[in-house]
Design a protein around this nucleic acid. Sequence first.
DNA 1: ACAGGATCCTGGGGGC
DNA 2: TGCCCCCAGGATCCTG
Length: 303
Amino acid sequence: MPELPEVETVVRALAPVLCRQRIVGVRVGSQRLRRSWQTDWKWPTKGSRRVVAVRRRGKWIIVELSQAECLLVHLGMTGRLQVAPRDQPEEPHTHLVFQLAPGKKELRFRDPRRFGSVGLVPAGDLTGFFERQRLGPEPFEVTPGELFAGLRKTRRCLKAALLDQRVVAGVGNIYADETLFEARLHPAKIGCQVTRTEAGGLQRALVKVLRRAIDQKGSSIRDYFYENGRQGNYQNEFRVYAQSGSPCPRCRTPIACIRLAGRSTHFCPKCQPEVRSQKSEDGSQAKKQRRGEGQRVPRFTDF
DNA sequence: ACAGGATCCTGGGGGC
DNA sequence: TGCCCCCAGGATCCTG
């Protein structure tokens, strides 16, 4: 599952291959992605676009093109971007193919579960696009104070807050669990109960875990390969994620697995002690009186 | 306004 | 061996 380290690794692998190439044509598959990008897909019918740069924001891949446009790619759960020779047979679930020149290669977007999305944005609207998404700060740029402020606002648990891209961009299920273990914080602890010191520790843990994962070229479980079948190695360093029942690497207590924010959540019951005033099963119902409609985050295809 | 559950989607694994 | 069912999870939609 591509999270920040996996996306960063893909970007680093793609950038030298794609930069200065021209996209001379696009072929669209018959299956729709989850987002209805296909009907909205507006690729210029004439002229080509040169790839100027490839970079990342949160879990988004940004392919900067000439003529002030950006190709935005989100890999979702199972998305893969791969550069392949044109004569190499297409794998199943290939939804989008960009023909490159010079040379006889293609950039292919493959996504079996179709949770990913691809779109074209004017470069001038890139900032606006991420603002409409309310995409939070990059983990390497967020200050302890900002993280503390973000957590203070919510009654959700830390696990849910870390998964929320508006709090901090790029964290998914794996790195949320690993970060909370590193910070010795219980995943069910309520955001607004976190102290400034704990928020500082969480920020340091986040940076440490993500840096190490990037060094290891991400985690390869099931679907993720960063470049033509090459795998990351961080899955060999998981300390809690997918380690249910295994001894904690610090204290040998069996790692526990519970369900939080709709996701499997792994932690050490001893190193990440239960919080004092944890959200009770039926507690937090005081919010019942709230009413009205939340502000809609624009769909990807809205721009 | 906010939190949490449901939803989409396919491949893999477990149980029978 | 083959079939069925469940689970995995990112982002968004829906409900309370």
